[in-house]
């Protein structure tokens, strides 16, 4: 019998890669750890980018934020590609069955014309904002430092595309797949005075150079306000006005926001806790973008929910900021 010999010699010679051992100790590392820590190139880049010759590839100076160790972060959801797509596939499955139910039961027809119009005017144009959010988060992937940071930005970026597509599908459910609702919503986005603030804000974020400032302007400030305003307050308003079936169509966004916020909060907190320099820098960005966002969102908040809607959302934002140490 050779079994005994085999078990004796099949002992592993090491438990994980050296870089994960140095970071987490001499024990088997998790799949999240092996897939996320210390795998990005850091040294000896050969050529300066033609598109930004004053920096190197993977240059840490593409943000004013300074971290001694860019791997100080941890995604509380521990998403690497495999866990990420499986989490989203699960959410997607529920969403698909909600949308199928809504369609099959003709629930759009049960909504009043007024409610439908309101959804098309106040909610559907957000698909364009989501495309901006997609671009902003992908920018953070492209120019950010360390996999543990950049991968989460890409997941966020792709999620935003997904959300833009679900918002579009809500429009299609409401217009019988004619695309009219989407055309109307786009017209609102382009010309309706209620939307011009948010569109201006979005376009302004698309020219920010510092990727961490993009994160603050988009994921921290704007998303907190918009998701509270639209997927909590607007949802309530519509329900009160007899449009409760909308809820099943925006469950994805609500669940997603809960999930994503855990990562946003953790990322913010780690950065702020690193140094007074970071704290002051971020405080400045937050103040700047919050002021713009509140002003730019106010007209939309008013038609979607009512007068005090923005201040209610600002309260939510302030709570999150306080939790992160700001």
């Amino acid at each position: 019998m050779t079994i005994e010999i085999k078990t004796a010699t099949l002992e592993p010679i090491r438990h994980t890669f050296e870089h994960t051992r140095r970071r987490f100790g001499d024990k088997p590392a998790s799949r999240y750890q092996e897939a996320s820590y210390d795998i990005a190139p850091e040294n000896n880049f050969h050529y300066r980018p033609m598109w930004q010759p004053d920096k190197l590839l993977n240059d840490t100076s593409r943000t004013a934020v300074v971290m001694e160790d860019w791997y100080a972060y941890r995604d509380p959801r521990q998403y690497y590609y495999g866990t990420y797509v499986q989490a989203r596939a699960k959410l997607q499955e529920v969403t698909e069955s909600n949308y199928a139910f809504f369609d099959k039961r003709g629930l759009a027809g049960r909504m009043s014309e007024e409610i439908r119009e309101k959804i098309i005017r106040c909610l559907i144009p957000l698909r364009h904002m989501e495309l901006g959010a997609n671009m902003n988060n992908v920018l953070c992937t492209a120019y950010g430092t360390s996999t543990v940071v950049t991968q989460a930005f890409l997941y966020n970026g792709m999620d935003r595309l997904g959300i833009a597509q679900y918002l579009s599908r809500i429009g299609l459910l409401l217009d019988g797949n004619s695309g009219e609702a989407l055309a109307q919503a786009k017209e609102h986005w382009m010309t309706d005075s209620a939307w011009q603030g948010l569109r201006r804000y979005t376009e302004n974020t698309l020219v920010i150079e510092d990727w961490f400032e993009v994160f603050i302007a988009q994921d921290v400030v704007l998303d907190t306000l918009v998701y509270d305003l639209m997927y909590r307050q607007f949802d309530q308003t519509i329900t009160e006005q007899g449009g409760s079936d909308l809820a099943m169509l925006i469950e994805f966004m609500q669940e997603w926001h809960k999930d994503n916020s855990r990562w946003v909060d953790a990322t913010l907190k780690t950065t702020v806790a690193e140094s007074e320099h970071n704290r002051e820098l971020i405080r400045g960005w937050v103040a700047d973008w919050q002021e713009k966002a509140v002003a730019d969102l106010a007209p939309l908040a008013e038609i979607a929910v009512g007068e005090d809607a923005v201040s209610a959302s600002v309260e939510v934002l302030n709570k999150r900021l306080a939790k992160a140490g700001l």
């Binding site: 050529y47 300066r48 033609m50 598109w51 930004q52 010759p53 004053d54």
Partner: peptide, 12 residues
């Protein structure tokens, strides 16, 4: 000359 986003791309 290389085509770069700025003039006078000079590598070290």
């Amino acid at each position: 000359a290389v085509a770069a986003i700025t003039e006078n791309y000079v590598g070290e």
